[in-house]
Design a protein around this nucleic acid. Structure first.
Length: 611
RNA sequence: GCUGGUGUAGCUCAGCCGGUAGAGCACCUCCUUGGUAAGGAGGAGGUCACGGGUUCGAUUCCCGUCACCAGCUCCA
């Protein structure tokens, strides 16, 4: 992943899958191929930014201009204005943009010396700052269209009349150079395309994303809440979503056992001593909650599970015969997040990680990596995500560990990936300060990218805790430690799933799997028989036998996005069958009861994504 | 944390220039027993986020707090 511009690389703990879903700019290409124009889309969007800047300049005399680049799906421009913008300003700016575009005007490029540039940019502090940073000898260019001129590298479209299919989307505060110590500017985001169809398709996608927002579906489907009384960033899982989570956890527990993981449970609080030794207190104190005194000794709520797992490892002498030792836990951790960043289930202050720490010998590393990658693949396939893997190497700035260790670990990551046939893209210098890693970027049903699973080699903690094992040839050696989270946090993962599936969970983990819909009261007893039979087989069934007719009941079940609706009328009772309707709207007609039950068992066991 | 916006019934929202609130859906009751997305009638439900201020009077105006929303910054 590209490093964030303008921010010094900071040592990180572990990467937890980070959704980028909330960002407009993360929205990828629409399902269809955008129309090609005479210039690349980036060029169009860059020119759009100029168009917008000129419009804002007309409407707000005295505007100071910062930067206006093209971004995924659109563009933005940052301004310093006499007053903050509101959404109501957008239509006016848009109108002015259309007026200027309609007039047309060639985009003209002129070169200038630094001296000339300084003179032309008088009163534009941000632009002047940029000019000063242009290395001597490099060309300084200005682009103009109509009466508007801007310091700019280009390139641009040939004429402003090409700037037709766009829409301004939002306003926001943004710091100059992304530095919160610098002045905050007004940013306007917009989207732009070569054709009206592309623009409309993109707006339709934004609407779909809004419809699938897990916070909205969370309310509609009674999935989760947060509470004023409890505090922000703390998620309460309602039964419907708890069932989804538990279905996943139950399946996952089996897979972990199959892959040789051993479960542990570790406490939620621990003495500060532990976090001092692990280094968390010194490096990450700002995300840990204040200490609480217990018998006059300071304790902390855990922000991570690693120290606990290490204590389990180090609780007695270990032999090479026990390695690799794979300890795993659904570990709930609490971290302080600044209030402005909290977001539904995706960015919270308390969450549960599917956390594992693998202790192994250097020679076992490759095999362990391969094993983890298999699990990643399994999860991605099970939920229908496609993904790409990035190998993150040693950071240029501060990092620890011998060069040979890094080389060995990177080679092991590579070899592990190779063994599972996983292509790796490079993220040079993107590793943690304590070791290299493989990160996964996954792509959901709407084409959005999320940060996914992570596997990290750690040279730091084994040192800090002086971990050892007795080697085959005698003597004590230091084990290698691998951190690995496949789902990341369940809050994020499941929150992401809600959006990925649009609330239409696959049969195996759906909160209610089968809706029983008797047509009249006469069929209620038969529905009850089916219900208790299915319940006995641990299916989740709900009878719709309240007030209303069949249409009403279908509508209710449909709104709950229940995968299978079993309609039961007189004919079905007589024939010992159900009439099967899917939430897709498909009507499969009469199905013998036994066949229906077999279908349910099959869909559950296979964890099929299709109904 | 920062900038801007929002906060009226469980949900979605109305409520003009201040005179103590209204709709649809959901909910409850009764009637209806109806073959693939809303049958009918009635009823109940709100300290208008919270705390101050201005005013004869504040849901409405002002200030503060909290939460949420769009971003920024941060991020495991």
């Amino acid at each position: 992943m590209p490093a964030l511009k303008g921010h010094p690389a900071k040592p990180r703990m572990r990467d937890l899958p980070t959704p980028m879903a909330a960002e407009k700019s993360s929205v990828l290409a629409p399902p269809h191929k955008p129309a090609e124009g005479p210039f690349p889309l980036e060029t169009l969007r860059h020119s759009m930014a100029h168009l917008m800047a000129s419009a804002v300049g007309h409407l707000f005399p005295g505007t100071k201009y910062a930067i206006g680049p093209p971004i995924e799906d659109g563009f933005y421009y940052d301004f310093e204005l006499p007053r903050p913008l509101t959404e109501e300003d957008l239509p006016k700016i848009e109108e002015e943009m259309r007026r200027i575009a309609k007039e047309g005007g060639k985009f003209v490029c002129t070169e200038a010396s630094k001296e000339q540039a300084r003179a032309r940019l008088k009163g534009q502090p941000y632009k002047l700052e940029i000019v000063e940073e242009i290395p001597a000898g490099a060309p300084i260019t200005f682009y103009s269209h109509g009466s508007w001129t801007d310091l700019c590298e280009g390139p641009h479209v040939d004429d402003a009349s090409r700037l037709v299919h766009f829409k301004l989307l939002s306003v926001a505060g943004a710091y100059w150079r992304g530095d919160e110590k610098k002045p905050q500017l007004q940013r306007i985001y917009g989207t732009a395309w070569w054709s009206k169809e592309d623009l409309d398709a993109h707006l339709a996608r934004l609407a779909e994303i809004e419809k699938r927002d897990h916070r909205r579906l969370g309310r509609e489907l009674d999935l989760f809440t947060t509470h004023l009384e409890a505090g922000p960033g703390l998620v309460f899982w309602h039964p419907n979503l708890a069932i989804v989570r538990r279905s996943i956890e139950e399946w996952w527990g089996g897979e972990l056992a199959r892959h040789g993981y051993l479960p542990v449970y570790t406490p939620h609080i621990a003495s500060e001593e532990l976090f001092k030794r692990s280094g968390h207190l010194e490096n990450y104190a700002d995300l840990m909650y204040a200490p609480m005194a217990i018998d006059e000794r300071p304790y902390r709520v855990k922000p991570m599970n690693c120290p606990g797992h290490i204590l389990v490892y180090a609780s007695r002498g270990r032999s090479y015969r026990e390695l690799p030792l794979r300890l795993s836990e659904m570990g709930t951790v609490y971290r302080y997040e600044r209030s402005g960043v909290l977001h539904g289930m995706l960015r919270v202050r308390g969450f549960t990680q599917d956390d594992s720490h693998i202790f192994c010998t250097p020679g076992q590393l490759e095999g362990e990596i391969a094993g983890v990658l298999e699990l990643v693949d399994l999860v991605m396939k099970t939920f229908g995500y496609s993904f790409t893997a990035f190998l993150a190497t040693r950071p240029k700035e501060k990092s620890i560990g011998a060069p040979e260790s890094w080389e060995h670990a990177i080679a092991a990551l590579r070899a592990g990936a190779c063994r599972t046939g996983l292509p790796l893209e490079m993220d040079e210098g993107g590793g943690a300060f304590y070791g290299p890693k493989i990160d996964f970027k996954l792509r959901d049903a709407l084409g959005r990218e999320w940060q996914g699973s992570t596997v990290q080699v750690d040279f730091n903690l084994p040192e800090r805790f002086d971990l050892e094992y007795t080697a085959a040839e005698g003597g004590r050696k230091r084990p290698v430690m691998v951190h690995r989270a496949i789902f990341g946090s369940l809050e994020r993962f499941v929150g992401g799933l809600v959006e990925h599936f649009g609330g239409r969970f696959p049969f195996w983990c759906a909160p209610v799997q089968v809706g029983l819909l008797p047509i009249t009261d006469a069929q209620v007893p038969y529905a009850g028989e089916i219900a208790s039979r299915m319940l006995g087989d641990l299916f989740r069934v709900k009878s719709f036998d309240g007030a209303g007719n069949l249409n009403k009941r279908i509508r209710e079940a449909q709104l709950e996005k229940i995968p299978y609706m079993a309609v039961i009328g007189k004919r079905e009772v007589e024939a010992k069958s159900v009439s099967l309707r899917l939430r897709t709207g498909e009507d499969r007609g009469a199905v013998p009861l036994e066949a229906f039950l077999a279908l349910c068992r099959e869909k559950r066991a296979s964890r099929s994504l299709d109904l």
